[in-house]
Design a protein around this nucleic acid. Structure first.
Lengths: 216, 216
DNA sequence: GCGCTTTGTGACCAGGCGGTAAATAGTCGC
DNA sequence: GCGACTATTTACCGCCTGGTCACAAAGCGC
């Protein structure tokens, strides 16, 4: 009779060995899609299965599920952001509307992707503290640059800062909700997301322009 | 020796008996707050404990956890809606801005409450089909009435329907995001929610008014 | 007071789940 | 080719968790 933990060699013909760094990348990439779909209560065994490995491998590379989730959040909220997206908003040769549109077209590949939206919302619902990466992404890389661009547009009289931020929140809220309808509730957005984005930004800009004219 | 399932009578002095209908109300009310906080993966035992009862009682009144969650959703997305809130939007004696503000002040007691927002988002993330009550609430009781009110405001030339709905989504997205920042991520909203609501609606209306002027 | 119905309890079950450890087997440096 | 390193697997642990069951007791009609 074998001892209590005799690992009987089963027929498991091939075991591709993959370097640790690459395996970790594979795990994080798969975990993003997996947790986005299943929620943070998704089972590590199922995630491992989708990778074609046994779930113990996860625990060799990450101390625990929480740390894996934290890595997923860092990847989404910090590593995948491109700082040059902010530069788009600063180009003085391009109209505000065009800048906003290009900004959201580029940044939207990250921010409006279902995985990003769903996991961002999950972190909020999970009860844990909001990841610092997420709040700083929102504040420092989205709202503030947007407000800067909006503020600079009032040619004759500079727009007060708080009003500019107000409008930045309004625009971003509109865009976020646009993405959320598709990513969270999977409702069919009336048009293609790109088109809807253009309409939303055009509406915002025409409103802002008209407002500026009406106030002079 | 007692049989395998001999319920040994323990010291449990008082057991207040409560009528089924009332108990069910108590359970649903507690479940709303509980699931809003803990997520749908919150444990039935913990919910029961917060009610001061054993978790078996839940299964006397509801066939299973899923049915309890479904009841919670029906309560939030159907039963708690007041049809008269829509009437606020139709009052011709009141300005559009005032109507919108009053509408969101009233409906906001439901729609912007953390329990409502968090559970509405959870249903989206849960992967199950969006509850019909939620989509019909959004479409029939919010977006369409809003669009009606906005459309009727273009005094000389009636606003095209699709534009009016576009603006309704924009306004509602702004308001939703306003609530979400507090309810989902628990970020401190810069001002009181009531004040922020007034600013958002004022901004929307001034924009719309300016737009209408600019286009004539 | 008596018995019937209804409300509540605690023990229990079976499967799920995060996490661990011993054993196995590719692969790389030499 | 060989040993050391390390990626990977199988088996297992212990707790959690939705759900069930037999039983106890509170209230109501009579």
């Amino acid at each position: 009779m074998p001892g209590p933990r005799a690992a009987t060699p089963q027929a498991e013909p091939r075991r591709p060995r993959i370097a640790a760094a690459e395996r970790e990348r594979m795990i994080v990439d798969a975990a993003i899609g997996f947790f986005a779909e299943e929620g943070f209560s998704g089972q590590t065994r199922q995630l491992a299965q989708s990778l074609g490995i046994s779930h113990s491998v996860l625990y060799r590379h990450f101390p625990g599920k929480q740390e894996l989730i934290a890595t997923v959040c860092t990847e989404l909220f910090e590593r995948r952001w491109r700082e040059e997206w902010i530069e788009i908003l600063r180009d003085p040769a391009v109209s505000l509307e065009e800048r906003l549109l290009r900004f959201y077209q580029e940044a939207g590949t990250l921010l409006l992707a279902p995985e990003w939206m769903r996991i961002a919302v999950m972190t909020g619902l999970s009860g844990a503290a909001t990841p610092s990466g997420l709040s700083s992404l929102l504040q420092d890389r989205i709202i503030h640059p947007l407000a800067d661009a909006i503020q600079a547009e009032g040619s004759d009289r500079p727009l007060p800062r708080n009003i500019a931020e107000e409008r930045a929140w309004a625009l971003h809220g509109r865009v976020f909700y646009l993405g959320a309808r598709g990513a969270i509730w999977r409702g069919a957005t009336p048009r293609s997301q790109d088109e809807a984005l253009a309409v939303a930004i055009a509406g915002f800009c025409r409103g802002a322009r008209a407002l500026a004219q009406a106030e002079t």
